[in-house]
Amino acid sequence: MNTTSAVRLAGVTKTFGSVRAVDALDLTIEPGEVVAFLGPNGAGKTTTVDMLLGLSRPTSGTVEVFGGDARRAVALGRVAAVMQTGGLLKDFTIRETVELTASLFRPARPVDEVLERAGIADIGDRLVGKASGGQQQRLRFAMALLPDPALLVLDEPTTGMDVQGRRDFWSAIRDDAERGRTTLFATHYLEEADAYADRIVLVRRGQVVADGSAAQVKAMAAGRTVRATWPGADSRALAALDGVDGVDVRGDSVVVHGSDSDTIARFLLTNTPATDLEITSRNLEDAFVALTADPAEGVLA
């Protein structure tokens, strides 16, 4: 059981007419990983998630969830999802919606437990139509917890939630991840990906363009920036270092940008009188823009 990947996508392609939404995408997720799935609109995130949940079939390639068919994994409750497109019925109460879903899974977690964990136990009798967007999103989360899934797929899970709601939500997700639940989430909040994912997968035009920890992905795109205090800095010597692509002298400060911050720092500390060294990576948003921008638009210089 330990050798089976939670998700295995191999050469998955999905075309709609002449549009290639997903293009020979490979992705393997091991049990227990918390993976953020990022990409601009139209990058193929939702199409990929749909195939993972058995809501659509790939034009070619293999989709395996826990070593088997995605539909089957959904029916057995191994996989559950919070989908943006999944609608709710206004005439049900929050509790009734969860009860209905619970009646379908074998086994299912107790209704009170999932309401509690999603933070909506106190509004169970409210009609769904009278619940706020954030409360509806918590309801979707409660429903996804019912089968106690081994893989949880979340498409923009915190949309509509306030700050506190978001924090509660992620703490629940992290708790489960520590107990071994695999989680894959797509989000527009890059800081959420940065803070809560073990691994970030960036997609562009239906292909994976970056895959690694948040720190790795940030470094991949833009390298790091090293700042030091060095009056009269020798910018030529710095520019000659391996991987340096920019040196900027600002008064007594020098700012060096490059792919290998270790070499820059070592040089500054051992060969120069530089002090007050600071090394910063560019943030995930910079990396996101750099890695997913269309080269034709000139953003990736």
Partner: peptide, 10 residues
């Protein structure tokens, strides 16, 4: 979209 939600159940 409720029918889509139901497709995430057995």
């Amino acid at each position: 979209g409720w029918s889509r939600q139901l497709r995430l159940t057995p």
